[in-house]
């Protein structure tokens, strides 16, 4: 399966860089942030790949790494019964990435969740609001520098 994916990607998009890795039978491909929408389009629409099911979009905060965040996409192809992980690095100073909600509509809420939890902005997103936390909340809870117990006073309580 790995060869097919790489072949199809290279055939459609000749000048992108793709790195692959494998762990516990899961194939991961790492692409550059600017190519993400193109790659996803190929993965979804190519007649041999057909990754039509976008399981999940999430991010990882590496805390002290140079590219602080990695955005992770989990895809599944019903045709090939194959699961693929796509990753793209995002740096804190330039904390945005293009949205893939135009490719899979299900990515919409996942991206909103990532925005809420990590503060990564998704360019051209149709409705980028916070998913869980109140709109007035200032922090992004899943960043590593946010304490588990929260910041006192950041969320108001009703009066007694």
């Amino acid at each position: 399966m790995k060869e097919i994916i790489l072949n199809q990607l290279n055939a459609s998009l000749p000048n992108i860089q793709v790195e692959t890795s494998e762990f516990k039978d899961e194939l991961t491909i790492q692409v550059q942030k600017k190519d993400i929408v193109e790659v996803c389009k190929v993965l979804k629409n190519d007649s041999e790949l057909k990754f039509i099911h976008c399981i999940d979009v999430t991010a990882i905060d590496w805390a002290r790494r140079k590219d602080r965040f990695t955005v992770v996409y989990h895809l599944f192809s019903l045709k090939n019964k194959f699961q693929l992980v796509v990753k793209a690095d995002v740096d804190e100073s330039d904390c945005n990435i293009d949205t893939v909600s135009s490719v899979w509509r299900s990515a919409n809420w996942h991206e909103r969740e990532v925005y809420d939890m990590y503060g990564i902005t998704f360019n051209f997103h149709p409705d980028l609001r916070r998913m869980y936390m109140p709109e007035e909340f200032e922090y992004h809870p899943l960043r590593k520098d946010f304490p588990v117990l929260g910041i006192p006073g950041s969320l108001p309580l009703p009066k007694k």
């Binding site: 762990f23 516990k24 699961q83 992980v85």
Partner: peptide, 20 residues
């Protein structure tokens, strides 16, 4: 070290856990 995603079929649908 590593990352895995494992999903099962729950009554409501696909429940998966992704670990780093």
């Amino acid at each position: 070290d590593g990352e895995v995603y494992h999903a099962v079929e729950n009554p409501k649908g696909e429940l998966g856990f992704y670990f780093v």
